[in-house]
Design a protein around this nucleic acid. Structure first.
Lengths: 200, 200, 200, 200
DNA sequence: TATGAATGAGCGTTCATTCAT
DNA sequence: GATGAATGAACGCTCATTCAT
């Protein structure tokens, strides 16, 4: 009966999946435990409760995005367009996996008016995402315009994720990605291939 | 002996508010009844249950958008830019009222993977919204491009609503509106003021 | 299914019984509900929770003691010894009923170091009981001595209740009552039958 | 590999403390383990379970009282009043330590009507205490009167402990002690200093 | 039409206990 | 001897729903 059946990290991965598909309030501790092959009660060896688990899920996911996705924007040795394309493609893989959509977008709509619990982490996600994109856009635009483009891209992506969830048609997300990319590449680069050298 | 304390319509209006703020799963029948000055039990004289109420709320809201907002796009006697501006402003008023955001966007993210119950109505909302915008955009673009612009605008707006909910800063939504409008007015109109004459 | 099955007051009476017999922590909401012929969930129509119910039980019981037992001490038209006898006999009936012992004594020992929740009400019980007895004893003693006698009697009674619970032998409580009464009647009354006229 | 972190006796001492403060039902195995610097699971190497531990705690404590406190009453070479004083003072030290009160009184009120598990040991405690005091009182009174005085003293002490727990005022217990002692010394000793020579 | 008591399933959580390591 | 993951029953409580009044 004892013997380790899972790990914190495995639980977090599963929880992203379950929360992502069902949302926070609809998901029960039983759902989460079952997804990990555990009983409800056993869950509390790993996490203090549902809220605490959600908080960790968000932080874990935020960490992942920071390390593996937003960081791409700052690899100034690569062409900016390539970085943008890579960022968006890698995001899309996560977003489309298991229909989970964007954990942070889901959480904002479901909880922002109901609890402050997850505000900090969700805000950090959108702030960092926007900052990464703004860094990229500064290869083409002045800082203010770059920021506006970054915001627009974030909004468009979140909207595309929503409609993808509704229609089950990943083409919508792909279309959005292409549109964003086209806007970027069509913006007249001042030089044949300018590298961004600015910082935030 | 008991006097009518409210009407179906009044309940629907209040329910939009409560569901909009708290989401579907988080909202209890008690919350809804209390918002209407009723007791839980009395609610079932008007609606068959939570799911049925939500369904009606969505239909009621969809009706409203069709009659008062999407319809604007088809008033071809007005300048297209004016129609676009008016649509977006009127949507924004509803969206910002009571922090409720977009009932349909909220519902998609919260329930799309969990139940098919609300799919039809939410899909109709996004289809009709996109169609209305596409109609407008056909004043400037060929049908395929117009459709793509319409989709982009819907996505951007939903993303803007999400970030507004998160940040409590209506400026984000206003910025999005202006951006959409600017894109539209800056697209070269083939004629001094072309009226759209096409249909869906 | 609906139709009133019980009343708040009936629940309080039953709860005194169950809490009195089993103690606070050992008693479950199911125990309480079952004692009232209700299901667990139905209980929450009457009380907000276990703690709130306990609080009300204590207040209800305190009220009863004040109105029907402590008040006897102040009926100065009756002989003091008679009042003392009556008070103690009436307390004993309650205490012996269903083995419940003294709700307040039980609650002090079980919760005083664990929560402040019930301190106020339990303190009020002992303060009022002591005050009532001190009023009686002032028929024989100076105020300071009267107070000490009152405290002694309260302590002795609570100890007697404890040993009665342990041994299931009501004779212990009866013996305590007689001892207290004998001390009182043997204390030389300054007048043939002095009536207390003092106030607290 | 694992080294002995504690001993049965150390655990019993800590458990007296925790049970004494929180009561039997409110105390969890985690509370007990934590107080000993152990994890819950390790506890079961020393004791078979909560009930068994409580049983041992009561026996261990009873042993202590028999050896170090009740035994004082039988040291007939000392003046009776001195023995009474010593007994009560030593009890008080234990009772006041960590607010734990009287383990046996606590346990009676919390469990007597719920389980027979602890009846034997708690009864033994009160029987032995009473017997020790009765032995002392026989230095002044005939056996029947001595027994009654002993019972009265036990009751008064337990009541005093209860009120001390409620008020956090150790003066109440001290007052009780003095009262008991005064009654004893004021009772006319038949001889200048009679030594008790009777046995139970 | 409105009430609100009652239901019963199920929620998040706790906890005494077991046992492979 | 010590660990701590796992269990599973039960806890306090919530909630959508029913229905006699």
């Amino acid at each position: 009966m004892p013997v380790q059946k899972t790990t914190r990290e495995e639980i977090l991965e599963k929880a992203i999946d379950v929360f992502g598909r069902q949302g926070y309030h609809r998901t029960t501790m039983h759902d989460l435990a079952a997804a990990c092959g555990l009983l409800k009660g056993s869950f509390y060896h790993y996490f203090n409760g549902k809220e605490a688990l959600m908080e960790e899920v968000l932080r874990y996911s935020l960490d992942y995005f920071r390390k593996h996705i937003f960081s791409i924007a700052y690899r100034d040795e690569l062409p900016a367009a390539e970085r943008l394309r890579s960022m968006m493609e890698k995001s899309s893989v996560i977003i489309l996996r298991n229909n989970q959509g964007c954990m942070f977008g889901n959480t904002v709509l479901e909880t922002a008016n109901v609890t402050a619990q997850f505000r900090e982490t969700t805000q950090a996600f959108f702030t960092d995402w926007t900052a990464a994109l703004a860094h990229l856009y500064r290869a083409r635009y002045d800082p203010a315009t770059a920021l506006e483009h970054a915001e627009q891209t974030v909004m468009e992506m979140e909207g595309a994720i929503m409609l993808t969830k509704l229609s089950n048609n990943p083409q919508l997300l792909a279309g959005c990605r292409e549109r964003v990319l086209k806007r970027f590449t069509q913006s007249a680069p001042s030089l044949p291939e300018q590298r961004t050298t600015n910082n935030e």
